[in-house]
Computed example of a mutant assay.
Amino acid sequence: MKQLSLSILTFAVGLIFSGCNPAPKSKTEVATINSSKDYMVVAYVAGYRDFDFSTIDVTGITHINYAFGNIRDGEAIFDTTKIDGKRLSPDDIVKLNSLKSKNPKLKVLVSIGGWSWSGGFSDAALSETSRAKFAQSCAKFVKDYQLDGIDLDWEYPNQTGAGNIYRPEDVQNFTLMLKAVREELDLMAREEGKNNHYLLSIATGADQAYVDNTELGKLAEYLDFLNIMTYDFYNGLHTVNGHHSNLYPSAQPKLDMNSAVNAVDMHTKAGFPVEKINLGIPFYGRIWKGVEASGDQILFNKAETVGMGIDYIDFYQNINANGYTRYWDDTAKAPYLWNAEEKTFISYEDEQSIALKIEYLKKRGLAGVMFWEYSADHEHKLLNAVLSNMNE
Results as ranks from 00 to 15, higher is better:
Lys2Trp: 14
Gln3Pro: 00
Gln3Met: 10
Leu9Ala: 14
Ile16Thr: 13
Cys20Arg: 03
Asn21Asp: 12
Pro22Glu: 10
Lys25Thr: 14
Ser26Cys: 02
Lys27Pro: 00
Ser35Val: 00
Val42Gly: 00
Val45Ala: 03
Gly60Asn: 14
Gly60Leu: 08
Gly60Tyr: 08
Ile61Ala: 09
Asn70Gly: 00
Ala76Leu: 01
Phe78Glu: 13
Asp79Ile: 12
Lys82Tyr: 00
Pro90Ile: 09
Ile93Ala: 08
Val94Pro: 01
Val94Gln: 14
Leu96His: 07
Ser98Met: 05
Leu99Lys: 08
Leu106Glu: 08
Lys107Gln: 15
Lys107Glu: 09
Gly114His: 06
Trp117Asn: 13
Asp123Gln: 06
Ala124Gly: 06
Arg131Cys: 07
Ser137Gly: 03
Ala139Trp: 05
Val142Leu: 05
Gly149Val: 03
Tyr156Thr: 01
Asn158Gln: 09
Thr160Pro: 04
Ala162Val: 06
Ile165Ala: 12
Pro168Lys: 15
Gln172Ser: 10
Asn173Cys: 02
Asn173Pro: 05
Phe174Ala: 06
Glu184Ala: 14
Glu184Cys: 03
Ala189Asp: 07
Ala189Met: 04
Gly193Pro: 12
Gly193Ala: 11
Lys194Leu: 12
Asn196Thr: 14
Asn196Gln: 14
Gln208Val: 11
Thr214Val: 14
Gly217Cys: 07
Lys218Thr: 04
Leu226Lys: 00
Thr230Tyr: 00
Tyr234Val: 05
Gly236Leu: 03
His238Ile: 00
His238Ser: 13
Thr239Ala: 09
Ser250Asp: 14
Ala251Pro: 03
Gln252Asn: 13
Pro253Trp: 06
Ala263Tyr: 04
Thr268Glu: 12
Lys269Cys: 08
Leu279Val: 09
Gly285Ile: 02
Ile287Phe: 02
Trp288Thr: 11
Ser294Arg: 09
Ile298Cys: 00
Ile298His: 15
Gly307Ile: 01
Ile313Met: 12
Gly323Ser: 11
Tyr324Met: 15
Asp329Thr: 13
Thr331Pro: 03
Pro335Leu: 01
Asn339Phe: 02
Lys343Met: 02
Phe345Asp: 03
Tyr348Thr: 04
Gln352Lys: 15
Ser353Asn: 07
Ile354Thr: 11
Ile354Gly: 05
Lys357Val: 06
Tyr360Ser: 11
Lys363Val: 01
Leu366Cys: 15
Val369Ala: 11
Phe371Asn: 09
Asp377His: 09
His378Lys: 14
His378Asn: 15
Leu382Arg: 11
Leu382His: 02
Leu383Ala: 10
Leu383Gly: 13
Met390Tyr: 05
